[in-house]
Design a protein around this nucleic acid. Structure first.
Lengths: 337, 337
DNA sequence: CTGAAAGCGCTAACAG
DNA sequence: CTGTTAGCGCTTTCAG
């Protein structure tokens, strides 16, 4: 079996408690004793048993991360930001995949709670985090931070993107590039997508443009949806000359549709996506996009969570929005930038 | 605080042990008592405390996953395969990022071990898993499965790709497509990349082709390396008309370089990558590639691990290679497929 | 400064 | 079938 504190204690003729304290840097141990203990621990390659430590103390130094889709590079980036921030503090991360499914999400969260995680980061698939939301979290005191998917009307910790600004930024850019007829391929039916649409409309209003309803088409979150939606737009009598797409995969699909039609990007149609997935630069036409700084989102969520975990009584929830940044590549670059 | 077994026991006037057994489906409890206990547990929303359970029993139902790069879609897919297979069995996954760094890897593994994980899946950055390799694993009995990066001369559980076959498959394909001058952009200095090179050479020999040494150029693992390497190849007096690239990012970079030079893909230069990262289909030129079935690798590793975790004495190590599959897209399709 | 006592919530082994 | 007795390895509390 692995070496325990008791082994060190016995070997040195001190009590188990002394070892425990010395190992954790308590001040009420003489320097000499501590030295001896530390040295011995090293020799024996002592590794604290975290299970026992967790049971006795009340921290596990585990943080749960619940995301809807591991394959989405946005979440992989968030996870990276989390590990970068949490790792050095001694936390480890348990990964849970909700598969975009509310029930699975609830189950996973309960499991994580049963493991006494110190905190949770959740990109929730739940529409309404209050009702349907894991009431479990209400009872337990476990702090949590929601990311990306803004919960409807709940006062919780949240880190994400100001999606309305994102939509506005993308649309403003298309207008500045000289597009006259600007369309939007919508995302799925969730708050984030709604807000991007709002931003799209806000930008058009701001510039006194009309909002032809047939220029807003149903889309989805994947490239096939973008492909289909773009086909639809291209069939219009007057097809758009600029399209803001819900996200990069959708935009990639749209690009495919445009090129197939024989039209040129960006001359005939300019395209802007969102998310800056890491391959955007390598697409058929390098894709202009709105970067959401996913890693920063992860890091920020981590910091908030750490504050909560360290605080005795829960701090007032914070909502932090990471400003989106426009990244101009070829797909929208009509004026030779 | 959360409800404990004791709470249920007290409420029902039975002993704690009875509850414990009933909850875990032991047979030596009367159906009636079990019913009462189960019902009560539900009412009270009892959730077992896994920390305590782990300390008392000897399983934690946690599996550690150590990977060098979260952002690489290959590993994300492996992780997905793992969760798919392990989740239903009640295991959760702790994620550790080694950042392609052997020292970090060792530390993370030790941490995982200190948490008493039931098993480990490691994509090791270590060249030699025997010497430099975490000897920790020798002492502890914790079962582990290595993936992707084949360890040098060690008899352990391993799931990965037969990289030599992969290289041969890609090169055979280029030859079949009618390429006359075939080059290879090498990967980094690791066993997998070596084997892909071996496969490349094997294919050429098999077809009685020459192996001009200047057609094998230094590369790396990212798109910038591919870009640079391809530039170099294009400067040759007789540039290649077919290139097998270490992986898809490298191939994407190579494509960029070719297109910039004004040459056409695949007419002037055919390109094949490896890995089938999920955006390959959306690249400037849809990329032919060799699929490694990353998710299957994850699932297979999971199954081997489960076998080991359940077995009383360690089964003899198994080495499983998942056959690579050629996926033909536009970048190599010279004969109108 | 050091240590003894008590217990975290659960399970394994055995006794009733 | 049910319950008792011992821990798992560590930490907190409080007395020396």
């Amino acid at each position: 079996m692995a070496v325990r504190m008791k082994d060190i204690a016995d070997a040195l003729g001190v009590s188990l408690m002394t070892v425990s304290k010395a190992l954790r840097g308590h001040t009420d141990i003489s320097d000499e004793t501590r030295e001896r203990i530390l040295r011995r621990a090293q020799q024996l390659k002592y590794q604290p048993n975290w299970i026992a430590r967790s049971l006795a103390g009340r921290e596990t130094f585990i943080v749960g991360l619940v995301i809807p889709d591991l394959m989405h590079s946005f979440f992989a980036e968030v996870a990276l930001g989390l590990t970068k921030e949490l790792g050095p503090l001694g936390y480890q991360i348990v990964l849970a995949n909700s598969d975009e499914n509310a029930e699975t999400e609830r189950r996973e969260i309960e499991l994580l709670l049963a493991r006494n995680v110190d905190g949770l980061v959740v990109a929730s698939t739940q529409r309404d985090w209050r009702r349907g939301g894991p009431h479990v979290l209400k009872n337990k005191q476990t702090p949590y931070v929601l990311i990306d998917r803004m919960p409807a009307g709940v006062n919780v910790n949240y880190v994400g993107t100001p999606d309305e600004d994102l939509g506005e930024l993308a649309t403003d850019h298309l207008i500045e590039e000289g597009c006259r007829r600007i369309a939007h391929i919508r995302g799925p039916d969730n708050p984030n997508a709604m807000r991007r649409l709002d931003g799209f409309e806000r930008s058009l209003r701001k510039h006194s443009r009309k909002l032809p309803s047939h220029y807003v088409v149903e889309g989805g979150a994947r490239d096939e949806s973008g492909y289909r939606a773009m086909k639809e737009l291209l069939r219009l009598r007057r097809p758009p000359d600029g399209v803001f797409c819900y996200n990069d995969p959708v935009a990639a699909g749209a690009i495919k549709a445009v090129l197939e039609s024989g039209a040129k990007i960006p001359q005939d149609v300019a395209i802007v996506g969102a998310g800056n997935v890491h391959y955007s630069d390598l697409l058929r036409v390098p894709l202009s996009t709105i970067d959401q700084s996913a890693q920063t989102i992860g890091e920020t969520a981590a910091r908030i969570l750490v504050d909560c975990m360290r605080a005795k009584n829960p701090p007032t929830p914070r909502s932090i929005l990471i400003p989106p940044r426009l990244i101009v590549r070829e797909s929208s670059c009509r004026r030779g930038c």
